[in-house]
């Protein structure tokens, strides 16, 4: 009996190992196929939402068509992921130099209850001036998130709440077609070549 249960445990561990291997193969390994069509963001031309930028101007997906765009979601009460992303994006814009002037860069809050226009204006003001902050009514934020096939959820903490959200940076070309993402855990040096590709610029070989 005892031996049998040990064997059973061994089998279970082997099965778990196989499951983990299969998961790795599909997610990070050679079997990774990128985003499925279902998870692929819509073209900006097929999205439909109406928000307000940090200067109080009405904005929507149509605002972004005509130039390549870099869009990401977050919230200003975010302690680590969002300031890291905003700081990284600021660094990429610096690396792009003059080319950065031909890119839309937008930070969309998933926490409009706390992130009003004033809060967004103050927050983005600490980063590269090219970064626009978008907020708006909760249902319009939800429509934007849906168009990007992103997600967010409110998580209650002891005395307050935080937001879990898609931390990928989305890249679109000038026609509004989705090109690629820069994921949060991806090596940061991949970002600038990806942005240049979305902009239709020659990708410099890294030296």
């Amino acid at each position: 009996m005892r031996r049998r249960s040990v064997l059973g445990l061994g089998g279970g561990i082997a099965a778990l190992g196989l499951t983990l291997l299969a998961g790795w193969w599909q997610v990070d390994g050679p079997g990774a196929s990128g985003r499925t069509d279902e998870a692929r963001p819509l073209p900006l031309t097929e999205m439909d939402f109406a928000l307000i930028d940090h200067e109080g101007q009405p904005v929507g997906p149509e605002t972004l068509v005509g130039r390549a765009s870099l869009v990401f979601f977050g919230f200003t009460f975010c302690p680590a992921v969002c300031p890291t992303t905003l700081a990284d994006v600021s660094g990429w814009l610096a690396d792009l130099g003059e080319d950065a002037a031909r890119l839309n860069v937008v930070f969309v809050t998933v926490d409009p209850a706390r992130d009003d226009v004033k809060a967004m204006a103050e927050y983005v003001g600490y980063f590269d001036p090219a970064i626009r902050g978008w907020t708006g009514p909760e249902e319009q934020i939800a429509r934007a998130v849906e168009g990007f096939r992103a997600t967010y959820e409110r998580v209650t903490t002891d005395d307050s709440y935080t937001m879990n959200h898609t931390s990928s940076v989305f890249l679109f070309d000038a026609e509004g077609r989705f090109v690629s993402t820069v994921d949060y855990h991806e090596p940061r040096e991949f970002a600038v070549p990806k942005i240049r590709r979305a902009m239709g610029l020659e990708t410099k070989r890294a030296t």
Partner: peptide
Amino acid sequence: VSEIHRVTTDDRGVSSM
């Protein structure tokens, strides 16, 4: 309150801590 938090990102690109 000071705590060490770990950030994890799932296969849909959603980060949580």
